[in-house]
Amino acid sequence: MPVLAIPFPVIDPVLVSIGPFAIRWYALAYIVGLVGGWLYARRLAATERLWGPLKRPTPADLDDLLVYVALGVVLGGRLGYVLFYDLKQYLEHPLDILAVWRGGMSFHGGFLGAVLGIFLLARSRKLSVLAMFDVAAAVAPIGLFLGRLANFVNGELWGRAAPDFPYAMVFPNGGPLPRHPSQLYEAFAEGLLLFVAVTIAVRLFGFRRPGLVSAVFAIGYALARTVCEFFREPDPQLGFLLGTKIAALGGGLTMGMLLCVPLFIAGVILLIAAASGRTRPRLTLERAAA
């Protein structure tokens, strides 16, 4: 083991336990991320200069949006993990699908679930669907940051073996070799850096060009996740896909990389459309005039 290898700071994944009732860091990360995003979204909705002529969501709209997004993230994230990452195992043990406290959530599945929830709410309230996507994109990195920290606390989704990397960690369930703390890389890239990127987009353009902030989020996440995948150990039941080998980095194409391709392409298309003004509605009305 390298002299500077860092022991994993073992943290009990259960924050508080009272009899059969337990509060886990993993669940707390989801709750705090959703509530923190909801509070920030209310602040963005209250800032009139960001919206121009677009109809702004009311506090009641955002209260309901929290429920829609929470259901979409949890149900979509779990279903996405089952379908994309371990379908065979869950077909053999279908009751395990309900054991969400053991981990096993897919960002891409949660993303699609949240998109569906936002779409349904925006259409029912006659709000701009793309503008509501933008609000969600502006706050989503908060949850991503906390979620990756929870992955680290759980000692899951660790990085690839890096015996020569001086600041690698030996994870309790990751074997004897030091590994990249890839959860922390993802918290930094998909959380902090992405939050800075979407915040700059909000400050410069607000939501007056519907879809632009969402495009920045989609492109930024796809790039950040793809880079981090080079340091993250692939799921053992999947390994590397398509036999692709990248000798310089000792790996290949992973499921995470593959799922980021359509997300990146959609982001580029949306960015071009939003920047050219094609996503602006021809006529927008304030709520008071509705």
Rank of each mutant, 00 (worst) to 15 (best):
A138V: 04
L192G: 08
G251F: 01
V139I: 09
E229S: 07
S124C: 07
V69D: 00
A140G: 03
V216Q: 00
F133R: 04
L258W: 09
Q183Y: 00
R287C: 15
A99F: 12
L95N: 13
P236M: 05
L184P: 03
A266Y: 11
L193V: 08
F195W: 15
V3S: 10
N154D: 06
A247H: 12
L249C: 14
G104S: 06
A162H: 00
F264V: 15
D96Q: 14
A138Q: 07
P53Q: 12
W51V: 04
F111E: 03
L120A: 07
G220E: 01
R278N: 03
V202A: 05
G211S: 11
A122I: 08
V16P: 08
I23Q: 11
M105C: 15
K55T: 09
L212K: 03
H93Y: 08
P172V: 14
A168T: 14
F195S: 10
R282D: 04
A46R: 07
R287E: 12
L98R: 10
E190W: 00
I18K: 11
L212C: 09
L238A: 07
L79K: 05
P181S: 05
P178N: 05
L242A: 06
G251A: 10
G109W: 03
L193Y: 04
V100M: 08
P13H: 02
L270C: 06
L127V: 12
A266N: 13
V139D: 00
E48I: 14
P20Y: 04
D134N: 03
A27H: 06
A131H: 15
A45S: 15
V10R: 08
G159D: 00
